[in-house]
């Protein structure tokens, strides 16, 4: 249905009504439009909608498990890691990609892992701490599960 030149971001927002993915720049510089594209972190503003044909796309709407928030969503809420919240979907997706890849990141690894996402409200402090806390929680659950 989308024209060949439609971005994945516009297709998600306008055609599928998935407004959780935001546009902050449209040029790949802010990370507000972050999605997982076959499990890899990508800017949906730089992907053409037809390229997503047959791929698995995860947006912020797909991070929770039904009613059960993902630990990142919970630690963002508890740690006040969002102020205006417009960057939050992108950060949650980027942080999930980071923790999927590296379940035990150092503070520096978190900072570099999230360096493609801009937040103008928080100064990143509470975002970094929320990701650290989520990593601890995820590790505990996976150890308990093992």
């Amino acid at each position: 249905m989308s024209a060949d030149s439609t971005s994945l971001l516009d297709a998600l927002r306008d055609e599928l009504g998935l407004i959780g993915t935001k546009e902050g720049c449209g040029t790949g510089d802010c990370g507000s439009c972050s999605v997982l594209f076959d499990g890899k972190l990508n800017c949906s503003c730089l992907i053409l909608a037809p390229e997503a044909e047959g791929r698995e796309i995860v947006t912020v709407e797909g991070i929770a498990d039904g009613d059960q928030l993902h630990p990142l969503q919970q630690t963002f809420l508890e740690g006040a890691a969002l102020q205006c919240g417009v960057c939050t979907p992108g950060f949650l997706v980027a942080a999930k990609a980071l923790l999927d890849e590296n379940p035990d990141p150092t503070e520096t690894e978190i900072r570099y892992g999230l360096a493609g996402n801009l937040c103008r409200c928080t100064g990143y402090d509470k975002i970094v701490r929320a990701v650290q806390e989520a990593a601890v929680q995820l590790k505990t659950t996976s150890e308990q599960g093992a």
Partner: peptide, 10 residues
């Protein structure tokens, strides 16, 4: 504008 890797904790 500053990104996370430019900064320490505040």
């Amino acid at each position: 504008i500053p990104v996370a890797s430019d900064l320490p904790l505040i």
